[in-house]
Amino acid sequence: MTRLPRLNPAVARTRRAVREALAGAGSAPGAGEGLVLVALSGGADSLALAAAVAFEAPRLGLEAGAAIVDHGLQPDSAGVSEEAAAAARGLGLDPVTVERVSVPGNSEAGPEGAAREARYAALEGVRSGLGARLILTAHTRDDQAEQVLLALARGSGARSLAGIPRRRGPILRPFLELDRSTTEAACAAQGLSPWRDPHNSDAGYARVRVRDRILPVLEAELGPGIAAALARTAELAREDAEAFDDMVAETIEEIVEPAEAGIAVSVAALAANPAALRHRLIRAVAAAEFGSHLSREHTLAISALVTDWRGQGPIHVPGISVARSGGLIVFTAHR
C-alpha cells in the first residue's frame, strides 16, 4: 500500500483554521457557490492564508480570489503588489485584483490609521464590485496581543481591550488563534517566498515597538505564553462587551424619551443601574443621537448629574449640552 507523505503540521493548522472559519461563517460543504477574497499583502501571514484558502475553498464549493491593496507608501510598491498578485495566481486564486489607494498624510488617525482606513475602504470596494461574500484577512494571535497592549497603554475600556474581532460584517479572520511562527513555517513548507515589509522593522510605529521590544521583555520577565494570555484577555473582554451591548440596547428603549430640542433620560432609571451599565447608556445616547463620542472624563461628569447632584450643570461636551431637569437628564445639541 502506498504511504501518503505526512502533511506539514503548520500547513495543516492553517488549512484547518480556514476550513473551520468558513464553516462557521455559513460556508460549509454543500452551501453552494460563492466567492471569497483573501486580503493579500505578500507577507508571510497573508501568503499562508492565501495558500490555505486556495486549498480549502474549492472543497467547500466556493470560488477564491485575492485583493491586493497598493498603498503607494514605499519605493516600488507597485512591483511588490504585482509580485503578490503573481503569487496569488500561482496558487490558483482567481480573480486577483490590485487596487492603488492614496493615503492622506495629515489624517487625525495618524499614518497607520490612515493607511488602515484606506485599505479597508478599498477592500470593501473590491468585495462589493465582485459580489464576494467574505474578505479574509490574516491577523494572527501576535497581532491580537499587540492590539491589547496598545489598548492598555491608552487606558481604553473593554471594547478596545476586546481587540481584533474574528468576524465583523464581511471581514473574517481565520488566523487569530495561530501565531506568526506558524504562518512563516507554513510558507517555508510550501516553498512560498514572503515579502518582508520594511515598515515592520520601523521603530517609529508603536506597533513595531510593542512587537520588537515590549513583548520580548514581557516573555523574558514573566515567562512564555504572554501573547496567548493577551489573546485570551481579548476574548473575555469581547464577551463582556457584547453582553453589555445587548443590555444597553434592551434598556435604552425603555428609559429614553423625546425632549424639546433633544433627548431625555430618566434619572431614576440611570441611578438604578450599576456604574458600568450607566456609563454605557450615557455614551450610547451621545453617540446614537448626536454622533458624539464621549471621553471617560465627560462620561463621569454627566454621570455625576445622576449620582452626585448638587445643582451643577449644564455639562458641555463635544456637540452636546447635558443638564438635569427635575427627574430627567436632558441632552441637547449645541446651537
Rank of each mutant, 00 (worst) to 15 (best):
E253M: 06
A237E: 10
A87F: 13
V208D: 04
E221M: 10
A132F: 01
A284R: 15
E33K: 02
D76N: 12
A118T: 02
L37E: 00
A231R: 13
V265N: 06
V69M: 11
V256E: 12
D143N: 08
L134G: 11
L40V: 04
V267A: 05
I302P: 00
L270D: 11
G225W: 12
R6T: 13
G326M: 08
G327S: 04
Q147A: 15
E108A: 05
Y120D: 02
A31Q: 02
I255A: 10
D45S: 09
A114F: 09
A57L: 02
L62Q: 04
A268F: 01
S77T: 07
A229Y: 08
S160I: 04
P174N: 11
R324T: 01
A51K: 00
S193H: 12
V53T: 02
A237S: 15
N8F: 07
H298K: 05
A272Y: 08
L294N: 12
R166A: 15
V217L: 14
V330D: 06
P75R: 14
A276M: 07
S128D: 06
L328M: 04
G204K: 11
V103A: 09
Y205F: 15
L294F: 08
T182H: 11
A153C: 07
G223R: 06
A48Q: 00
P165N: 05
P165G: 02
S295N: 02
R13I: 02
A203F: 13
V148R: 04
A50V: 03
G65I: 00
E250R: 14
H199R: 15
A271F: 11
L230A: 05
D45L: 01
A54I: 01
E260S: 12
G163F: 10
L134E: 11
L136V: 01
R238A: 13
P314Y: 15
S193P: 07
R335Y: 08
A85V: 02
Q144F: 05
E117N: 14
A188D: 05
A185V: 01
P58E: 10
N8D: 15
A229R: 15
G43L: 06
L222S: 02
P224C: 09
P104S: 12
D245Y: 05
G32M: 03
L294E: 13
A51D: 07
A132R: 02
L277A: 08
G225S: 10
S181A: 15
G291P: 09
R167M: 14
N106Q: 14
G225P: 09
F55A: 14
A301Y: 04
R133V: 00
A243F: 06
S46L: 03
R238P: 03
A286Q: 03
R127C: 10
R280Y: 11
R15S: 08
D142T: 14
P258K: 12
A304F: 01
R310C: 07
G223H: 03
G131D: 10
A229T: 05
E242F: 09
V98N: 00
A17H: 10
L152Y: 08
V101R: 05
V256S: 09
A118E: 06
H298S: 14
A220Q: 10
A28P: 03
G311E: 06
L218G: 14
D70C: 03
E250H: 13
P194K: 03
F244W: 13
E253T: 12
G157F: 07
L172R: 05
W195F: 14
I329C: 07
E56I: 08
R100E: 06
